[in-house]
Amino acid sequence: MVKIVSQRPKSLKDKIFHYCPGCGHSIVHRIMCEVIDEMDIRGITIGVPPAGCAVLAYNYFDVDMIEAPHGRGPAMASGIKRALPDRIVFSYQGDGDLAAIGIAESFHAANRGENITVIFINNAVYGMTGGQMAPTTMLNQRTTTSPDGRKQSLDGYPVKVSEIFSQLPGTTYIERCMVNSPAGVNKTKKAIRKAFQCQRDGLGFSLVEILSPCPTNWKMNTIDSCKWIDDVMSNVFPPGVFKDDIKARATEAAV
């Protein structure tokens, strides 16, 4: 008898990813779909993919999806969620989408405590457009638009989304994870599950920031990319739970 130890999640379409080898998007897509399967929420989930490499996410997620203009995912997700409060609504955003062009929409959705989940892919660079500087690009990191490395005097500092958003009283659960190792992937999956559960329980805004490799634009091989997250990126963007008010909110809700 054959024992199945791993298979494609039902919520993930049977398609070959267009993402580059070593890219974190495909890993995150897959674990999100596993969570959707495990929670049995495929039929009530609506996703909002961003502009950026993940713009084609609807080719992979077998859930209802609507594409948002660049950075507007959280506004659109707010509209969907307010119209359909019993659905599970997530926006999937990159660093440019969330922390640059869409910072207002993201910040205010968080501040309103919208009962949605934001999956935030932080790879410190603009992927789809070819490796330009992102709001999360680190000081001295070279990109095509910071050829001498990001300079604070010109470009300011990398934006630490989890740290900043966790200060907003409207947010409930914020965790930063990494998908550069099997352990990191497992931890990320747990965080995503927790975020979706937080939403399902009606407890408010949840955000999972995921440090995710972009070997192509980092100009590294896949192994080095994973190492670079450990050695460099995680120093600036330390992983961890930045906010967990789930229990407190649940108690509040019960009262």
């Binding site: 948002a68 507007r72 506004a75 659109m76 707010s78 119209a83 207002a104 205010h108």
Partner: peptide, 15 residues
Amino acid sequence: VAAINMIAGASAAGA
């Protein structure tokens, strides 16, 4: 900017 995208989302949701 947010307003128009909020109504786009709600419109897609059927409102």
